[in-house]
C-alpha cells in the first residue's frame, strides 16, 4: 500500500482527490437541488419527497457517510495545498499583475471553500440535527425562512458556492487530465452554466418561501 500513499500524498495526488471529491459534490448538489425544487409544487410534495428520501434507510446513511468522508478529504487536502502554496513563495512581489488567466473563482478557491465549510455546518444544524418527530420538514424550513436573516445568509452562501464551483468544475476536469482543445471551451462554459444553475436554483428557494407565508 506504500505506493498508493506515495501517489496520493504527491502534489498531483492531492489535486486528484480535490477533483474527485469536488466533482462528487457537484453531483450531490444537482440531486439536492432537484429534490428541493419540489418545494415549488407545494408543502405536501416537499414532505413526500423528504419521506421517500428517508425511507431509503441504510442507503441514505451510507450516502451521508460517503459525503462526510469526501468532505473530510476535500477540506484536508485543500488545506494542505493552500498551506503548501502559501510557503512556495515566501517573499511576495512588490507588484504582481495577472496576465488574464485568473478568474474571480480561481483567485478565491480557498476562501470560498472555507465559507462553504462554515455554511455546511450551519446548514446541518438548521435542518439535519433537528427534532423531526414533532414537525414536518416543510414546517422547519418555512419557520427558518420566515426570518430575513436566514434568507440573507442562505442567499449569500449560495453565491459563494456558485463562485467556488465556477472554477472548481472545469478545474477538476483539467486535474484528472480530461483536457482537449476541442472540448475545453465547452467544459468551461458548462462550469459557468452549472454554477449559475446552482446559485439561482438554490438561491431563489429561501426568497420563495419567505414570500409564500
Amino acid at each position: 500500500m506504500n505506493w498508493f500513499f506515495d501517489i496520493i500524498r504527491s502534489s498531483i495526488g492531492k489535486k486528484m482527490m480535490m477533483a474527485v471529491t469536488g466533482l462528487s459534490f457537484c453531483i450531490f448538489l444537482t440531486g439536492h437541488l432537484i429534490g428541493n425544487l419540489t418545494i415549488y409544487k407545494g408543502k405536501d410534495a416537499f414532505n413526500t419527497y423528504a419521506e421517500k428520501l428517508h425511507s431509503l434507510g441504510p442507503l441514505l446513511t451510507a450516502a451521508e457517510i460517503g459525503l462526510l468522508l469526501f468532505a473530510v478529504v476535500h477540506v484536508l487536502s485543500g488545506t494542505l495545498l493552500f498551506i503548501g502554496n502559501f510557503y512556495a513563495r515566501p517573499q511576495r512581489y512588490v507588484i504582481k499583475k495577472s496576465a488574464g488567466g485568473r478568474t474571480v473563482g480561481s483567485r478565491t478557491m480557498p476562501y470560498t471553500g472555507f465559507f462553504v465549510l462554515l455554511f455546511v455546518v450551519f446548514h446541518l444544524i438548521n435542518f439535519h440535527f433537528v427534532d423531526k418527530t414533532q414537525q414536518t420538514i416543510y414546517l422547519i424550513v418555512s419557520n427558518a425562512f420566515a426570518d430575513p436573516v436566514y434568507v440573507f445568509v442562505y442567499i449569500a452562501a449560495m453565491i459563494i458556492v456558485a463562485v467556488h464551483v465556477s472554477h472548481g468544475f472545469w478545474s477538476a476536469f483539467q486535474t484528472v487530465g480530461a483536457n482537449h482543445p476541442k472540448y475545453m471551451p465547452i467544459v468551461r462554459g458548462t462550469a459557468i452554466c452549472f454554477s449559475l444553475a446552482i446559485g439561482v436554483g438554490f438561491g431563489f428557494l429561501p426568497i420563495y418561501i419567505f414570500y409564500m407565508q
Partner: peptide, 28 residues
C-alpha cells in the same frame, strides 16, 4: 518546494513559448 497547480492558467498566458496547459493535463 514548488507550489501546487490550481489551474489559474497564468503560466500559459505568460510563457514566452506559449506552451499550452494541455501539457499539464497530459502530465496529470
Amino acid at each position: 518546494g514548488f507550489g501546487n497547480c490550481t489551474n489559474e492558467t497564468e503560466c500559459e498566458a505568460e510563457c514566452p513559448k506559449e506552451i499550452s496547459i494541455t501539457n499539464i493535463a497530459r502530465l496529470n
